[in-house]
Structure formats: structure tokens, C-alpha cells
């Protein structure tokens, strides 16, 4: 029996496309070495609706693509700040992110809750370091109790002083933080601590072209692509996708010919 015949003919083209699409994603994502690389820390979910007296949990998700040689991080730390008048941190559990990619790796570390100051501190090491952790997983889960007498409000959960270290680099990773908000009993859900129009003021030291189209809706998934119509995207950036699409098409055709 041929290898092709093991798969239903109707499935094979789909499998081919899926596999190659996965490859394309891998090809097109270009991780960088430390410095230009960034480790993303985010509170998840970024918005939580809760009532006074309720208990909630949030994850701190860490996303690390690793360097060009597939090395990841072996240490991370961060603080999570909250309003201690409204929230009480009751428990912090280490997540599995830092053990990613190695079933034998463990996450060692410490957690601390300073409920007077409203700070949860997490510091972790991967043991053994190996090639480091890559991926996007929870690094910690934090449980909060909302004060029984809490008034309706939107309370920020802010990640501060986040850091991560690649096993392969002398340089610390740049940490990019995404905070969260707890909306207590219908607190203003538009109040997330950010500016109101969705587009920040132009940063100091930046010139924007007169005809630039700053995409505040940001609904293209394109990472800030704002070029005016008619301009080609970067030469070469779509090559991977084009090659994969072509290969997929050829394989689909071939699979049909073998049916």
C-alpha cells in the first residue's frame, strides 16, 4: 500500500496545507538575539469582571520565541502590582512556562506576597537550563479575593520590573509588559488606564510622514502596517508564504493524480 493511500484522499490536501502552513509560520517568524529580541509578559485575561467578595485568578503569560539557534530563556522574574485596598492576593503558583520543551526540566523559584504594598513578586529558574524555554505559557497563576465592601471600580493589575534571560546570550532580554484590569461590580470597562482614542501621541523623536495612515483600529493583524495603498509590502517577506503556497498546490495536485 502506498503511503498516499493511507490517508483518505479528501484529507490529504488539507493535511498538506496545514503542515506547510505551520512551516510557513515558523519560517516567517524571525526571532532575534537578545537586545532586539523581546520577552512578552501579559496578564491574562487582560480584563476580568468580578463582584465584591468574589475570588478571581489571572495568569501571567510569558511568550518567548528564543534566539536563532532555538535557545530559550532559563530565568524570569516580575512583580505584579495591585490595589491592596480592593484586592488581596491569596495565592501564587508557579506555571509551567519555564519548563517548556523539556519533560525533565523543572521550575524552581520563589514567590512573595506583600499585601500591604500590593505587590506579588515572582522569580523563577529553569533547572537544568538546557536549551532554555521557548513558547507561550503561563509562568504563574495569581489568586485574588476582592474586598467584600469594594465599590464599583476598574483596578489595574500591572506587571513591573519584568526580566528574562536567554541561555545563549550575555544580554538580558527586553521585557514587554501587557497589564490587566479587574472591573469590580460593573466598574467602568472603558477605564483601562490607557489614553482614550486608542492611538498614543506621536512619541518624542519620531517624524510621521504627512500621508502616513496610523491605523488606530489595528484590525489587520499586520503589526502596524500602515502604508498607503499601492505600495508593495516588503520584498522577500512574503516569499516564504508564496513558496509554501506553491508547494502546497503542487502537492495537492500530485495527491489527486495518485488517487
Amino acid at each position: 500500500m502506498s503511503e498516499q493511500s493511507r490517508l483518505p484522499s479528501s484529507v490529504l490536501p488539507l493535511v498538506v496545507v496545514i503542515v506547510l502552513s505551520c512551516l510557513a509560520v515558523g519560517l516567517l517568524a524571525t526571532p532575534a538575539l537578545a537586545g532586539d529580541g523581546a520577552t512578552i509578559f501579559e496578564v491574562h485575561p487582560d480584563e476580568v469582571d468580578a463582584d465584591a467578595g468574589e475570588t478571581i485568578t489571572v495568569d501571567i503569560i510569558v511568550n518567548e520565541h528564543g534566539d536563532l539557534h532555538a535557545n530559550g530563556i532559563d530565568a524570569l522574574s516580575f512583580d505584579l502590582e495591585y490595589d491592596a485596598d480592593v484586592l488581596t492576593a491569596t495565592e501564587v503558583e508557579h506555571g509551567s512556562m519555564l519548563a517548556a520543551g523539556d519533560d525533565d526540566a523543572t521550575v524552581d523559584g520563589m514567590t512573595d506576597i506583600d499585601d500591604d504594598a500590593g505587590v506579588v513578586t515572582v522569580s523563577q529558574q529553569r533547572e537544568p537550563s538546557g536549551d532554555g524555554a521557548r513558547g507561550r505559557e503561563s509562568a504563574a497563576t495569581v489568586t485574588f479575593e476582592i474586598d467584600d465592601d469594594a465599590e464599583p471600580a476598574s483596578e489595574p493589575l500591572e506587571i513591573v520590573d519584568a526580566s528574562a534571560t536567554l541561555v545563549s546570550s550575555d544580554y538580558p532580554q527586553t521585557a514587554v509588559e501587557f497589564d490587566g484590569t479587574v472591573h469590580v461590580e460593573g466598574g467602568d470597562e472603558t477605564d483601562d488606564g490607557e489614553s482614550g482614542d486608542g492611538v498614543d501621541d506621536v512619541p518624542d523623536g519620531v517624524t510621521i510622514a504627512d500621508d502616513a495612515d496610523i491605523d488606530s483600529s489595528a484590525d489587520d493583524g499586520g503589526g502596524g502596517q500602515t502604508e498607503s495603498a499601492g505600495e508593495d509590502p516588503v520584498p522577500g517577506f512574503a516569499v516564504g508564504a508564496a513558496v509554501v503556497t506553491l508547494l502546497a498546490t503542487l502537492l495537492v495536485i500530485a495527491s489527486r493524480r495518485f488517487q
Binding site: 524571525t30 493583524g221 503589526g223 502596524g224 500602515t226 502604508e227 509590502p233
Partner: peptide, 10 residues
């Protein structure tokens, strides 16, 4: 996914 500009303009 990653901190980078996707499809930057020419």
C-alpha cells in the same frame, strides 16, 4: 506573536 513589523512598506 512576536515584537516585529510585519509587512513593512517599501
Amino acid at each position: 506573536e512576536v515584537i516585529e513589523v510585519e509587512d513593512p512598506p517599501a
